[in-house]
């Protein structure tokens, strides 16, 4: 089976800073994959390269077999990205935002799916509210909804629960788990390691632009008996 995401020897510099130092990994279809590491490890640079927001200096990345540069249209159609920053367009309400995002992906008349997403993310009552009037947590939910409007098989969540209350987190994870159960590949970066431990079947640990550990969550934990993922993370980073 073609990997959901295939990353081969990706290098990226910003001036003299080496953000990615030859990252290679495959993420299989249907996985719930965790990409973990301290700030500056290169997680967001890797995700931005995957999403076509950054062009790597060398190496290749493909989504379901489609190169993110050479075949960017198909690659982007197959990918949904929830960005880390809490960004929104202040001119539109929630429903307009989602209709516009659908249109960008070539989909008109997407209201049935939009309604379903709004329902699952507990946003139905806010559909006609301007984005400016939403709380931070609500805006975060809209970002998740925007990433899902075109039903992408691969979903990237870059710190989706930063600044989000416990209730929303639980609702969000329930929905994302359902999507994963339906066959969507989920790639998650988070600083909440207990979430990664509970959700991800496989984890890559990154440090200074390199993957320093890549294994199933169970194997990573088994290598450090009795330790939590947080302790495994700290020990691996210190090695």
């Amino acid at each position: 089976m073609i990997p959901a995401v295939s990353i081969v020897d990706v290098v990226k510099h910003f001036g003299s800073l080496q953000a990615l130092a030859g990252v290679s990994l495959d993420i299989e279809q249907g996985e719930f994959f965790g990409l973990l590491g301290p700030n500056g490890a290169g997680k967001t640079t890797l995700i931005s390269s995957l999403a076509g927001l950054i062009r790597p200096d060398s190496g290749t990345i493909s989504v379901m077999g489609h190169d993110v540069i050479g075949d960017f249209r198909e690659a982007r159609r197959l990918l949904g990205v929830v960005p880390q920053e809490l960004v929104f367009d202040p001119f539109f309400n929630v429903r307009e935002t989602l209709r516009i995002q659908s249109g960008y992906f070539g989909i008109r008349k997407n209201d049935d799916w939009i309604d379903e997403i709004l329902e699952h993310l507990d946003l139905a009552s806010k559909a006609d509210v301007n984005m400016r009037r939403l709380s931070g947590g609500m805006k975060r939910r809209v970002l998740v909804a925007q990433a899902l409007v075109h039903r992408p098989p691969v979903i990237v969540l870059d710190e989706p629960t930063a600044g989000v209350d416990v209730e929303l987190r639980q609702g969000l994870w329930q929905f994302i788990r359902r999507l994963n159960g339906e066959g969507h590949t989920i790639i998650l970066t988070t600083h909440y390691l207990e979430e990664a431990e509970a959700l991800c079947n496989r984890i890559a640990l990154m440090k200074q632009g390199r993957v320093i550990a890549l294994d199933t969550t169970a194997n990573l934990m088994a290598a450090h008996p009795g330790a939590s993922l947080e302790q495994v993370f700290v020990r691996t980073m210190q090695q």
């Binding site: 076509g52 249209r73 960005p83 929104f88 992906f105």
Partner: peptide, 17 residues
């Protein structure tokens, strides 16, 4: 505005030529 607020990602992520 889109660049400064970061909302430019909404038009950069989709497959718009």
């Amino acid at each position: 505005q889109a660049k400064i607020t970061g909302s430019i990602v909404f038009v950069l992520l989709p497959p718009i030529p």
